[in-house]
Design a protein around this nucleic acid. Structure first.
Lengths: 217, 217
DNA sequence: AGAGACCTTGACTGGTTGGTCAGGTCTGCT
DNA sequence: AGCAGACCTGACCAACCAGTCAAGGTCTCT
């Protein structure tokens, strides 16, 4: 019973190791999201993925190393999505696509978003270097693009940073504050609500910077 | 030395008690904001306000009770600010005033905002009742007002909830994600930047729902 | 089949934390 | 002055937690 996991077909050694690590990372992401780094316990993570606590320490040297891996994984997903902000496309298209993508992430990677929020909120002790390098660089390229749009008179003259923050904040709100949103909504958002919220956010942002949102969809 | 606090003139018994409690709450707010509930220790809070740990337990029965008081205090401040959303005023005025007020709160009560965000993000285990009663009620009155504006054709037809979330998210972002904002900004926001950010948020939101932002200020 | 690497796990440990308490100090009142 | 009650605090404790370990199981390769 031991080696082979419950419902998983056993593959090669490396495959199984990867699978187990992913199972632990998934469980850790949820537990860290629910309780924060300090509030999470290795035992809780172990329970969440049905492994003895000692196994976690076999695959990840320490709680902090495990946490770092969780945060890094989130950041990678976030970065991929960031590329949907196409620097070549028209402003309406680029912004619409980016906002829609981020809304999808908020719906599908709620825990990940929460872990990231937690980390940044507590001063980013683990991933400060990412903020200063990767995120900084990405932000600067997009700021440059938005500035170009402004220079070309295509959108209103605003500081691009405030616009980006607005998009990040609004979209991530649906993940980080999901509990509040769902309480006020008396239940989870329906597909139609997700779509309507996305369309509304796009509409306000686009119109807000002087663009014509055009036809929804 | 004991009874009288360092630089505080001793007042009446009740006054001194209140002062000490406030000092503890202030320290607790900062520590909880930095480390989360689980990560915060009573010792750290004690150190932050220069009192022996045992004193904290004299004034607050348990860590959880102290935390609850901290969160309740935040919520009250938040509620007060919420009243600047004047249900009688013109849409431009009411929204402008509300957004500006919330931006100010983000600047001046950063720790409080973080504690609130933490609490909600972790499923609001302590203040679920507030969400369901006070916040629900407040939200409904404002939703009704926004609906009226829509019915009168004064603003675009959008679901008011998405608008409120956008305002909450965007303004609170400057507190909760202050570390990220300041990293990307390579330093704290200047007064001028705060003002510019506020104006930009107001502008995008107002224009976004079909209003004329009018003259800044 | 046998060796050796890899994996699993219950039991254990040293350190930390929330919370307690007894004994002391101070304040305001009579 | 003297007393009662509020306030302060160092020392202590039980619970909990990250991390360790040794013993045993399983897989792969020859």
């Amino acid at each position: 019973m031991a080696q082979t996991e419950s419902a998983e077909k056993s593959g090669t050694r490396a495959e199984m190791r990867e699978e187990t690590e992913r199972a632990i990372l998934d469980a850790a992401e949820v537990v860290f999201a629910e309780a924060g780094f300090g509030g999470a316990t290795m035992q809780a993570i172990a329970d969440a993925c049905g492994l003895p606590k000692a196994n976690l320490h076999y695959y990840f040297a320490s709680k902090e190393k495990l946490y770092r891996r969780v945060v890094e994984r989130i950041f990678m997903i976030w970065l991929e999505a960031a590329d949907s902000f196409d620097t070549e496309a028209e402003p309406e298209i680029a912004l619409r696509r980016y906002i829609a993508r981020k809304m999808l992430l908020s719906r599908d990677y709620r825990s990940g978003s929460k872990v990231w929020a937690n980390e940044v909120m507590h001063g980013a002790p683990i991933i400060q270097d990412y903020l200063e390098t990767t995120l900084q660089a990405w932000t600067e390229t997009r700021v440059a693009v938005i500035r170009r749009w402004i220079a070309e008179g295509r959108i209103a003259a605003i500081d691009p940073k405030w616009l980006l923050y607005m998009i990040w904040a609004t979209t991530q709100h649906y993940a980080d504050f999901a509990h509040q949103v769902e309480t006020l909504n008396r239940g989870p958002l329906t597909d139609a609500q997700w779509q309507d919220a996305t369309e509304t956010v796009c509409g306000i942002v686009l119109r807000g910077i002087g663009l014509d949102p055009g036809a929804p969809r």
